[in-house]
Computed example of a mutant assay.
Amino acid sequence: MTEQTPPKLSPAQERSLLSGLANTKTRVLEGRPVTNRALVRLGLAYHAPTFMEYRLTEAGLVRAQELRDAQRAEQFKEDAAAVEEFRPKGTRPVYARDIKEDMIVHDGALGFRTVVAVKTFEEGPFVGNHWTRVTFALAEVKQADHRSTSRTSEPTFIYFVKEEPQPRPAAEVLGADPIPADTSVLVGMPGDRIGRDGVRLSEALTGEAYVVQLRSKGVWILPNHDDSAHVTRGQVVGAAERVRRSAPDHARASVDTDGTLYVSNGWQSARYIPATLFEGYRADTCPGCGTAYATNGDGPCKEAN
């Protein structure tokens, strides 16, 4: 069975199809009689028993959805370009109607906050009265039942959503190094600073498992196999605290946009990469060479070091 190309529509027919999306439950298509009769001939609508009422066929509903998506995509390009200069680092622009629960959103005033509820209302024709109500968790929860809400008009309102890095091959993740050559980790660590005037460590560590790498002669290496590169969130907290106590005056820590934590006291440095960044990650397997810790001995990983 060959795929059929959508019939060529005039601008008036396209407007009629878009207006038909105003009520997708009954798929009622109301418009000028001539336009509607043309849509019937194209097989995109059919006569209903009620006088001057037409209903979209399955093909008509699909075509109308395609037209709406194309219109929204074009509008989104324009809106996203208009707000690009205001976009925080590590975020992507998203229409309010596309926000989902548990997304981490930068709302402009209080920085990153977690979305706890979203409800979108669509009234009238496609270009009519649309608005979305987004409920955020407070940046610092002082009362468990206190929530702030914002009502935003559609479709032009854009939020900035924190990007979620996609898993990559282990070699690519382990080999990436954002620190400039001939620069120490203490000076060149990327991302937001963790500490009294920056991000809290508890907020920076969003994962439950990490892969640790140590800095040696200007490059990142994995620990020996007998030490295992797999660490838990609690172990990362303990290690970062030990580095801070070892040099409280000049130890530093930062979190990059992909969730990687960097710590250094000037002579010892490490980074903790979220395990979710590794494709097919296994806690009992070395990410450098892919061998099991139970059988790969106690020496260094030759593949990654």
Rank of each mutant, 00 (worst) to 15 (best):
W220N: 09
R92S: 12
F136W: 13
T295V: 03
R252I: 12
E3T: 12
M189S: 09
R87V: 11
P167L: 03
Q213K: 05
S216E: 14
T156K: 10
A38F: 00
L201E: 06
V255I: 10
E58K: 07
R72S: 14
G128P: 02
D182G: 00
T114V: 09
P169T: 06
A209M: 12
G234I: 07
E163G: 03
G188A: 09
R87M: 15
S184N: 02
A251D: 13
V62I: 11
Q213M: 14
P248V: 14
K162A: 15
T120Q: 02
V28I: 11
R32C: 11
Y210M: 01
F121N: 11
F157M: 03
E140P: 00
E66H: 04
T2V: 10
R215V: 05
L138E: 08
R27V: 03
R32G: 12
P300K: 10
L138G: 05
T135F: 05
R168K: 09
P300F: 13
A96W: 02
E279W: 05
F51I: 02
N36T: 03
F86S: 13
E84C: 04
E279C: 03
M103H: 01
D69M: 04
P178I: 08
K142R: 15
D182N: 12
V243A: 10
E30C: 06
D226M: 08
R151T: 13
H146D: 05
T120P: 03
E58F: 07
F86K: 14
D79F: 09
K8V: 14
V83L: 01
D145S: 10
K8I: 11
G234Q: 15
G218K: 02
D145E: 15
L42Q: 11
P6I: 08
T50L: 09
A64P: 10
Y159I: 04
V116L: 04
L61R: 11
T132Q: 06
Q13V: 06
A73P: 01
P165V: 00
G188F: 14
A170P: 02
G175A: 15
A292W: 05
E122P: 01
K119G: 06
D227V: 13
A171M: 01
E53T: 14
A81T: 07
R244L: 07
E3N: 02
T91P: 07
P49W: 03
P190G: 04
K8P: 00
L138T: 06
V28Y: 11
R63H: 14
R72E: 06
L18I: 13
P155A: 08
L44M: 05
D107P: 03
Y159W: 14
T232H: 11
L39Q: 04
T257M: 13
N23H: 09
V116D: 12
A109H: 05
V34Y: 14
R97S: 07
K100I: 00
L174P: 13
Y159L: 02
N129T: 12
V255R: 06
T285K: 05
N129R: 13
W220E: 08
E154Q: 11
V40H: 05
R252Q: 10
G207A: 15
Q65E: 12
G234Y: 12
D79A: 15
G90M: 03
E122L: 14
L201F: 07
E241K: 09
A251F: 10
L201N: 05
V141L: 10
K162M: 12
D98A: 09
A171I: 08
P49K: 12
V94L: 08
D102C: 04
R87D: 00
A240H: 06
A283T: 06
P49R: 10
T57V: 08
S19M: 11
G43Q: 11
A38P: 04
